[in-house]
């Protein structure tokens, strides 16, 4: 489903060149739950950002479902992200000025869909993460775990085939972290959603199908 071929990412300034990813070759199957681990600064998030079309590789190929996505222009990439990808961030990234349901609706706003249809889908996504009683609340009225569940609802509302989660439990205590992990595992199992998760937590990583380790930008496992 996702193939990374000879992928490199180098950050250049006028004085220094930093290699973030070095010749990454990785293949992820449909329905696979993959976790990426490694020390801070090893390139985990950069790899996830490239898979999520949020960043561009310096060289190499990114192929998703047989299509070489790295050749797309920014508009086509935006459309691809909207229809096929869902994101979960460590710090939730909910928009504080929008209610919970409006936050969840966000990906659907950029699709041609009626407001009523958007609302129905958003409420259904919130129900699936157990937050149907928090629809009209605002993010600042929620706990960390609830915020992350809203973020998961936002990631799944458009039914993407791939979810990219960057340390989704990183800001949560172990109870809430486990709750979030359970939701992700259920999603992977029931809907065959491909999930790529960056984590520091060995226990969480062990719950996934496969673990990839990075060190200094290179794949070591």
């Amino acid at each position: 489903m996702i193939q990374l071929q000879n992928l490199n990412k180098v950050y250049r300034t006028s004085t220094i060149e930093t290699t973030a990813l070095n010749d990454i070759n990785l293949s992820i199957d449909k329905g696979e739950f993959l976790s990426i681990m490694g020390p801070s600064g090893c390139g985990k998030s950069t790899l996830l950002n490239i898979m999520g079309l949020l960043d561009e590789p310096s060289s190499g190929k990114l192929v998703i479902n047989g299509q070489q996505i790295s050749d797309y222009n920014s508009k086509a990439m935006a459309k691809y992200r909207n229809q096929h990808l869902g994101f979960i961030f460590q710090s939730f990234h909910l928009i504080p000025d929008l209610s919970v349901v409006d936050n969840v609706e966000l990906p659907l706003i950029y699709r041609k869909m009626s407001a009523a249809q958007r609302k129905t889908l958003a409420k259904s996504a919130l129900e699936s993460v157990g937050l149907s009683n928090r629809v009209d609340h605002y993010p600042n009225q929620l706990s960390g775990g609830q915020k992350q569940r809203v973020a998961i609802a936002r990631a799944i509302v458009g039914e993407p085939s791939i979810i990219l989660a960057d340390e989704p439990t990183g800001n949560l205590d172990s109870v809430m972290g486990n709750e979030v992990m359970e939701i992700l595992l259920r999603l992977n199992k029931e809907k065959q959603t491909t999930i790529v998760m960056v984590t520091h937590d060995e226990n969480m990583a062990n719950m996934t199908h496969r673990l990839v380790r990075l060190y200094d930008g290179s794949q070591v496992q």
Partner: peptide, 14 residues
């Protein structure tokens, strides 16, 4: 700024 990042991540164009 962060809101812009989220919107773009979820499919907003420039």
């Amino acid at each position: 700024s962060s809101e812009i990042g989220v919107r773009k991540a979820f499919g907003a164009t420039d």
